[in-house]
């Protein structure tokens, strides 16, 4: 297993294969009418792709559009522009029937262990739902549910219990089981571990990594915590106000960020080593990034310009395009 693991860490999967998922120029606007059309889009021309077996991390501040992208991919949010292609099939506006026809290849694990399982159904009922939809008998579905529970580290008899009888970490494992029960190819994890305690978070992260190595899964791993993303992802996409600021190999983006916003984000994530943290704090303060409060830039130009220490007039007039800097793509005029 260890060779497989090293492989997943530092090799970028071959780019000539059909990507598992391709998101192109995705635009999502909330609301209707002229006012909504004038407001900045929640997701603004975002493009990225996920290769088979690859994990892509999506990070950014609250409200940067991470969840919206996940929802658009899962068909939970109407798309205003762009395309989403899953294994060559355009699923941008696929309905319930078409999604059913995907055969459960595209699945999701959500953030909140309390609301991602129906409290009125037993674990067995929740796990069986996607299987029954694909025509399995009740007995088959139950057997499969028990196997899957065992795989995520829970006893088989958990099928007859209700979500309230489990702790947050256990519930999150059940959500993982539910997502993986119909052998998906791609799993969208939206803040899948952020509501958990450290030790439980580590358990679920390990589980996700194991299952990926075991089954060759692809993940879109959405999180606000860059260190968590760093553990699981090979590539990272950094969002700010619905736009991609930087994307590239996880190690490059998190250790040697090129975009001023990524630099601020990485520098703000505290490490549990006092001396190093003191140095990081100084480095962060010397970056001179301004506070995000109340800074709503007018459309056009770089969305980060009101906080950016390097901003010039050019940044206010011209939206920087993503361009290759080192191993990453960076959207900054001066990176």
């Amino acid at each position: 297993m260890s060779t497989a693991v090293t492989e997943r860490r530092d090799s970028t999967p071959p780019s000539d294969a059909t990507p598992m998922l391709e998101v192109k120029d995705l635009v999502v606007r909330y609301g209707r009418g002229r006012k909504a059309a004038a407001a900045p889009a929640a997701v603004d021309h975002v493009s990225f792709s996920i290769a088979p077996g690859e994990t892509v991390g999506l990070v950014g501040e609250s409200g940067s559009g991470k969840s919206t992208i996940g929802k658009a991919i899962l068909g939970l949010q109407k798309v205003s522009g762009g395309t989403i292609t899953y294994q060559g099939k355009d699923i941008t506006s696929a309905g319930a029937a078409e999604r059913r026809a995907l055969g459960g290849e595209l699945r999701a694990v959500f953030q909140d262990p309390n609301s991602s399982l129906n409290p009125r159904n037993t674990i067995g009922t929740s796990l069986a739902e996607p299987l029954r939809l694909r025509g399995l008998s009740a007995a088959e579905a139950r057997a499969k549910a028990e196997d899957m529970l065992e795989r995520v580290g829970l006893p088989r008899d958990a099928v007859d219990r209700y979500p309230s009888q489990f702790s947050g970490g256990q519930r999150q494992r059940i959500s993982v089981a539910r997502a993986l029960i119909c052998d998906p190819q791609l799993v969208v994890c939206d803040e899948a571990v952020s509501a958990l305690d450290l030790s439980t978070q580590a358990q679920v992260l390990n589980l996700l990594a194991d299952l990926r190595d075991e089954r060759g899964l692809s993940y879109l791993f959405i999180a606000h915590d860059i260190a968590v993303v760093q553990f699981l992802a090979q590539r990272v996409v950094v969002l700010y106000r619905g736009q991609v600021m930087e994307s590239g190999p996880a190690a490059a983006v998190t250790e040697n960020p090129r975009h001023p916003f990524t630099q601020a984000l990485v520098a703000a994530s505290p490490v549990p080593r006092p001396a190093e943290q003191a140095a990081r704090r100084e480095a962060r303060e010397s970056l001179g990034v301004r506070t995000g409060a109340a800074a709503v830039p007018a459309p056009g130009g770089c969305p980060f310009r009101l906080r950016c220490p390097l901003a010039t007039d050019l940044c206010a007039t011209e939206r920087p395009a993503l361009r290759r800097v080192g191993t990453a793509d960076v959207a900054c005029h001066y990176a």
């Binding site: 068909g75 939970l76 319930a96 029937a97 995907l102 909140d112 991602s116 129906n118």
Partner: peptide, 14 residues
């Protein structure tokens, strides 16, 4: 609720 989202992802009809 998120479990409704999860069911939609499964392709459960409205």
């Amino acid at each position: 609720q998120l479990y409704v989202d999860a069911a939609k992802v499964d392709g459960v009809s409205t």
